[in-house]
Design a protein around this nucleic acid. Structure first.
Lengths: 340, 340
DNA sequence: GTGAAAGCGCTAACAT
DNA sequence: ATGTTAGCGCTTTCAC
């Protein structure tokens, strides 16, 4: 294994100075054509690649973004991640990823580890535990050090930074309106994520839509919890009652179980029961009947977040202003709401 | 925003030399207790964090792993990724991720970008295009530079590096044996990934299992393609014939469609048709009936890959030996194979 | 047009 | 026990 090509090595081989080599390789006008060509050709021959660490150290920036995601197995986050990765790469940034697994400690640890000059800024969705505990100190610390953060989907109100969110409230309103238009009178709300900001917003949208139509929110039609076991038991009871003809499920587990239990109980979908779920993975199409969903446009959210962060990184201004971008959702009608 | 704390800054503030500060912070025995304490307390006060780039430059290693994944939306890769991330973090490594999107160009570009001292080694699953074109030069180039690579799942035979694979062949054999044990006589093979190494191995396992039982491979029972449209059309025809009572589906699309088409045609699962699919996501449990799967233990594959790479990185030996680890699969029996 | 030198922040061998 | 120095690989200012 021959020694790695460096400026020093090349300069020695060619009998010229390091700075000349450096300038020649960056196509500086200070260098004569013949020298440039000679250096560039030799560099290619030696398979020279400028050392990134050295450059970063010199430039005091890494062109790297730290991404912290609660759970990559969740298709929504996987989609957002792919959007971030795509947009970042397109602008010449690398992406370092940590998975918080919904743990506050891991989230904090990741930020500590990466804020040491490893990344230029963060894109993240707040861990469940962080939201429940309402911990914001680690975010504020990083921001105070002058490192920008962009939060997406799960954000914290009292942290001042750029945010990319989905209009959860409005999406629920629309979904419920749609169900009513289909003739549903007894619309249930199913939530296993009532401990998350997004879960609460979606539930509020459900209530608002009913109120808008002068209908009351019936307790027996509402399942709000953060325990899947609790949820499953209550769902079975609810669907056994026969007193439901429409469902808005605000998370994947709720959506899935609504379909499964209904099918098992022989309830005809969509004839007797229409179901709309918040969901992003391909699996909603794979179910039979396929599930109508509110899609959150994960990739766009990721791209937007990356765009916001990179803009901030590349603008040298000292007066920070914070933007919140709302990405529209889309109701994708599939077989679980198509009345024939 | 006050200037970032550095060794230099601290040494100036405290009126001692940089190296004393450095040693004090790393708890060197050369430094007196009082000084250590003074330095450490001041450093904490100033929120000092050693600059990673500088350390990396000095050490000529980054404690960072480059991960290249064909598609993060595929639950199998998402699971492997989470395994890599977990194991890497546990050993103090960061993970930089690129998504090749099955493109050879992107895969190569990622390796070029990261091999410049940004990462210490790679973990990757070969892009589909790379496999079809049988391009191996970019791998060999990196390896020749002394940077280790661990390939998982989709590997290349003639690249000498560590590998973590699943015993695709044997898994298929077992699955088919299981179907035969359930009494299936007309077992179909469904594959949409016949252009991938894993797809071919799984198909071979199917054939072997039949041969082992002195049964012939019937052409009409075999759908091997790399086009989903082609697949869907042929599948519908096959299931309409009624001449199938067992299915081995070797990829997610095939598994999904087998279930969907069968349900739509009113074929009773598992009474009239048993289905086993290669699949990893939670969605197999979400289907009704739930799908029996061959699970590939994604997280374990990822952890093993990370372990292999880190071992190589931390062993200074100059004689490279290459290991191939086979991670066992597991047949998860669910409702699509349970005869009542 | 080319080169010398300083410095990014850190470590470590080598003084003192 | 503390300090000096050199150097990781690169960029950039300033001389020549």
């Amino acid at each position: 294994m021959k020694p790695k090509a460096t400026l020093k090595q090349i300069s020695k081989d060619l009998g010229i100075s390091v700075s000349t080599v450096s300038k020649a390789l960056s196509d500086s006008h200070e260098i004569s054509e013949p020298t440039k060509i000679r250096v560039q050709e030799y560099a290619k021959l030696q398979n020279y690649k400028p050392n990134t660490m050295a450059k970063n150290l010199k430039n005091q920036r890494t062109n790297t973004i730290g991404v912290i995601i609660p759970n990559i197995l969740n298709p929504f986050f996987a989609k957002v991640f792919s959007g971030i990765e795509k947009a970042a790469n397109a602008k010449g940034y690398n992406v370092i990823t940590y998975i918080s697994n919904e743990s506050h400690a891991k989230e904090k640890q990741a930020m500590d580890l990466l804020s040491n000059g490893t990344v230029d800024g963060f894109i993240l969705s707040v861990a469940q535990e962080t939201q429940s505990l309402h911990e914001t100190q680690h975010f504020k610390d990083i921001l105070r050090e002058g490192m920008p953060i962009v939060m997406f989907d799960r954000t914290m109100e009292d942290v001042s930074c750029d945010k990319v969110i989905v209009d959860d409230f409005e999406s629920s309103v629309e979904a419920v309106n749609h169900l009513m238009k289909l003739g549903c009178n007894k619309i249930a709300l199913l939530s296993c994520i009532d401990n998350l900001s997004v879960g609460k917003h979606r539930a509020l949208g459900y209530e608002r839509a009913l109120q808008d139509h002068k209908r009351s929110v019936e307790d027996y039609l509402v399942i709000k919890t953060d325990s899947e076991e609790d949820f499953d038991a209550r769902l079975k009871k609810l669907l056994s009652s026969g007193e439901v003809d429409g469902i808005l499920a605000v998370d994947e587990h709720a959506s899935t179980m609504a379909m499964k239990v209904a099918i098992q109980k022989g309830i005809k979908i969509p004839e007797e029961l229409c179901i709309i779920g918040f969901a992003d993975g391909v699996w909603s199409r794979r179910l039979t009947p396929s599930l109508s969903t509110i899609s959150q446009h994960g990739p766009e959210i990721g791209e937007e977040a990356a765009k916001l962060l990179i803009e901030k990184l590349e603008r040298k201004q000292e007066i920070p202003t914070f933007k919140t971008t709302v990405v529209k959702t889309e109701l994708r009608q599939r077989d679980s709401t198509r009345r024939v």
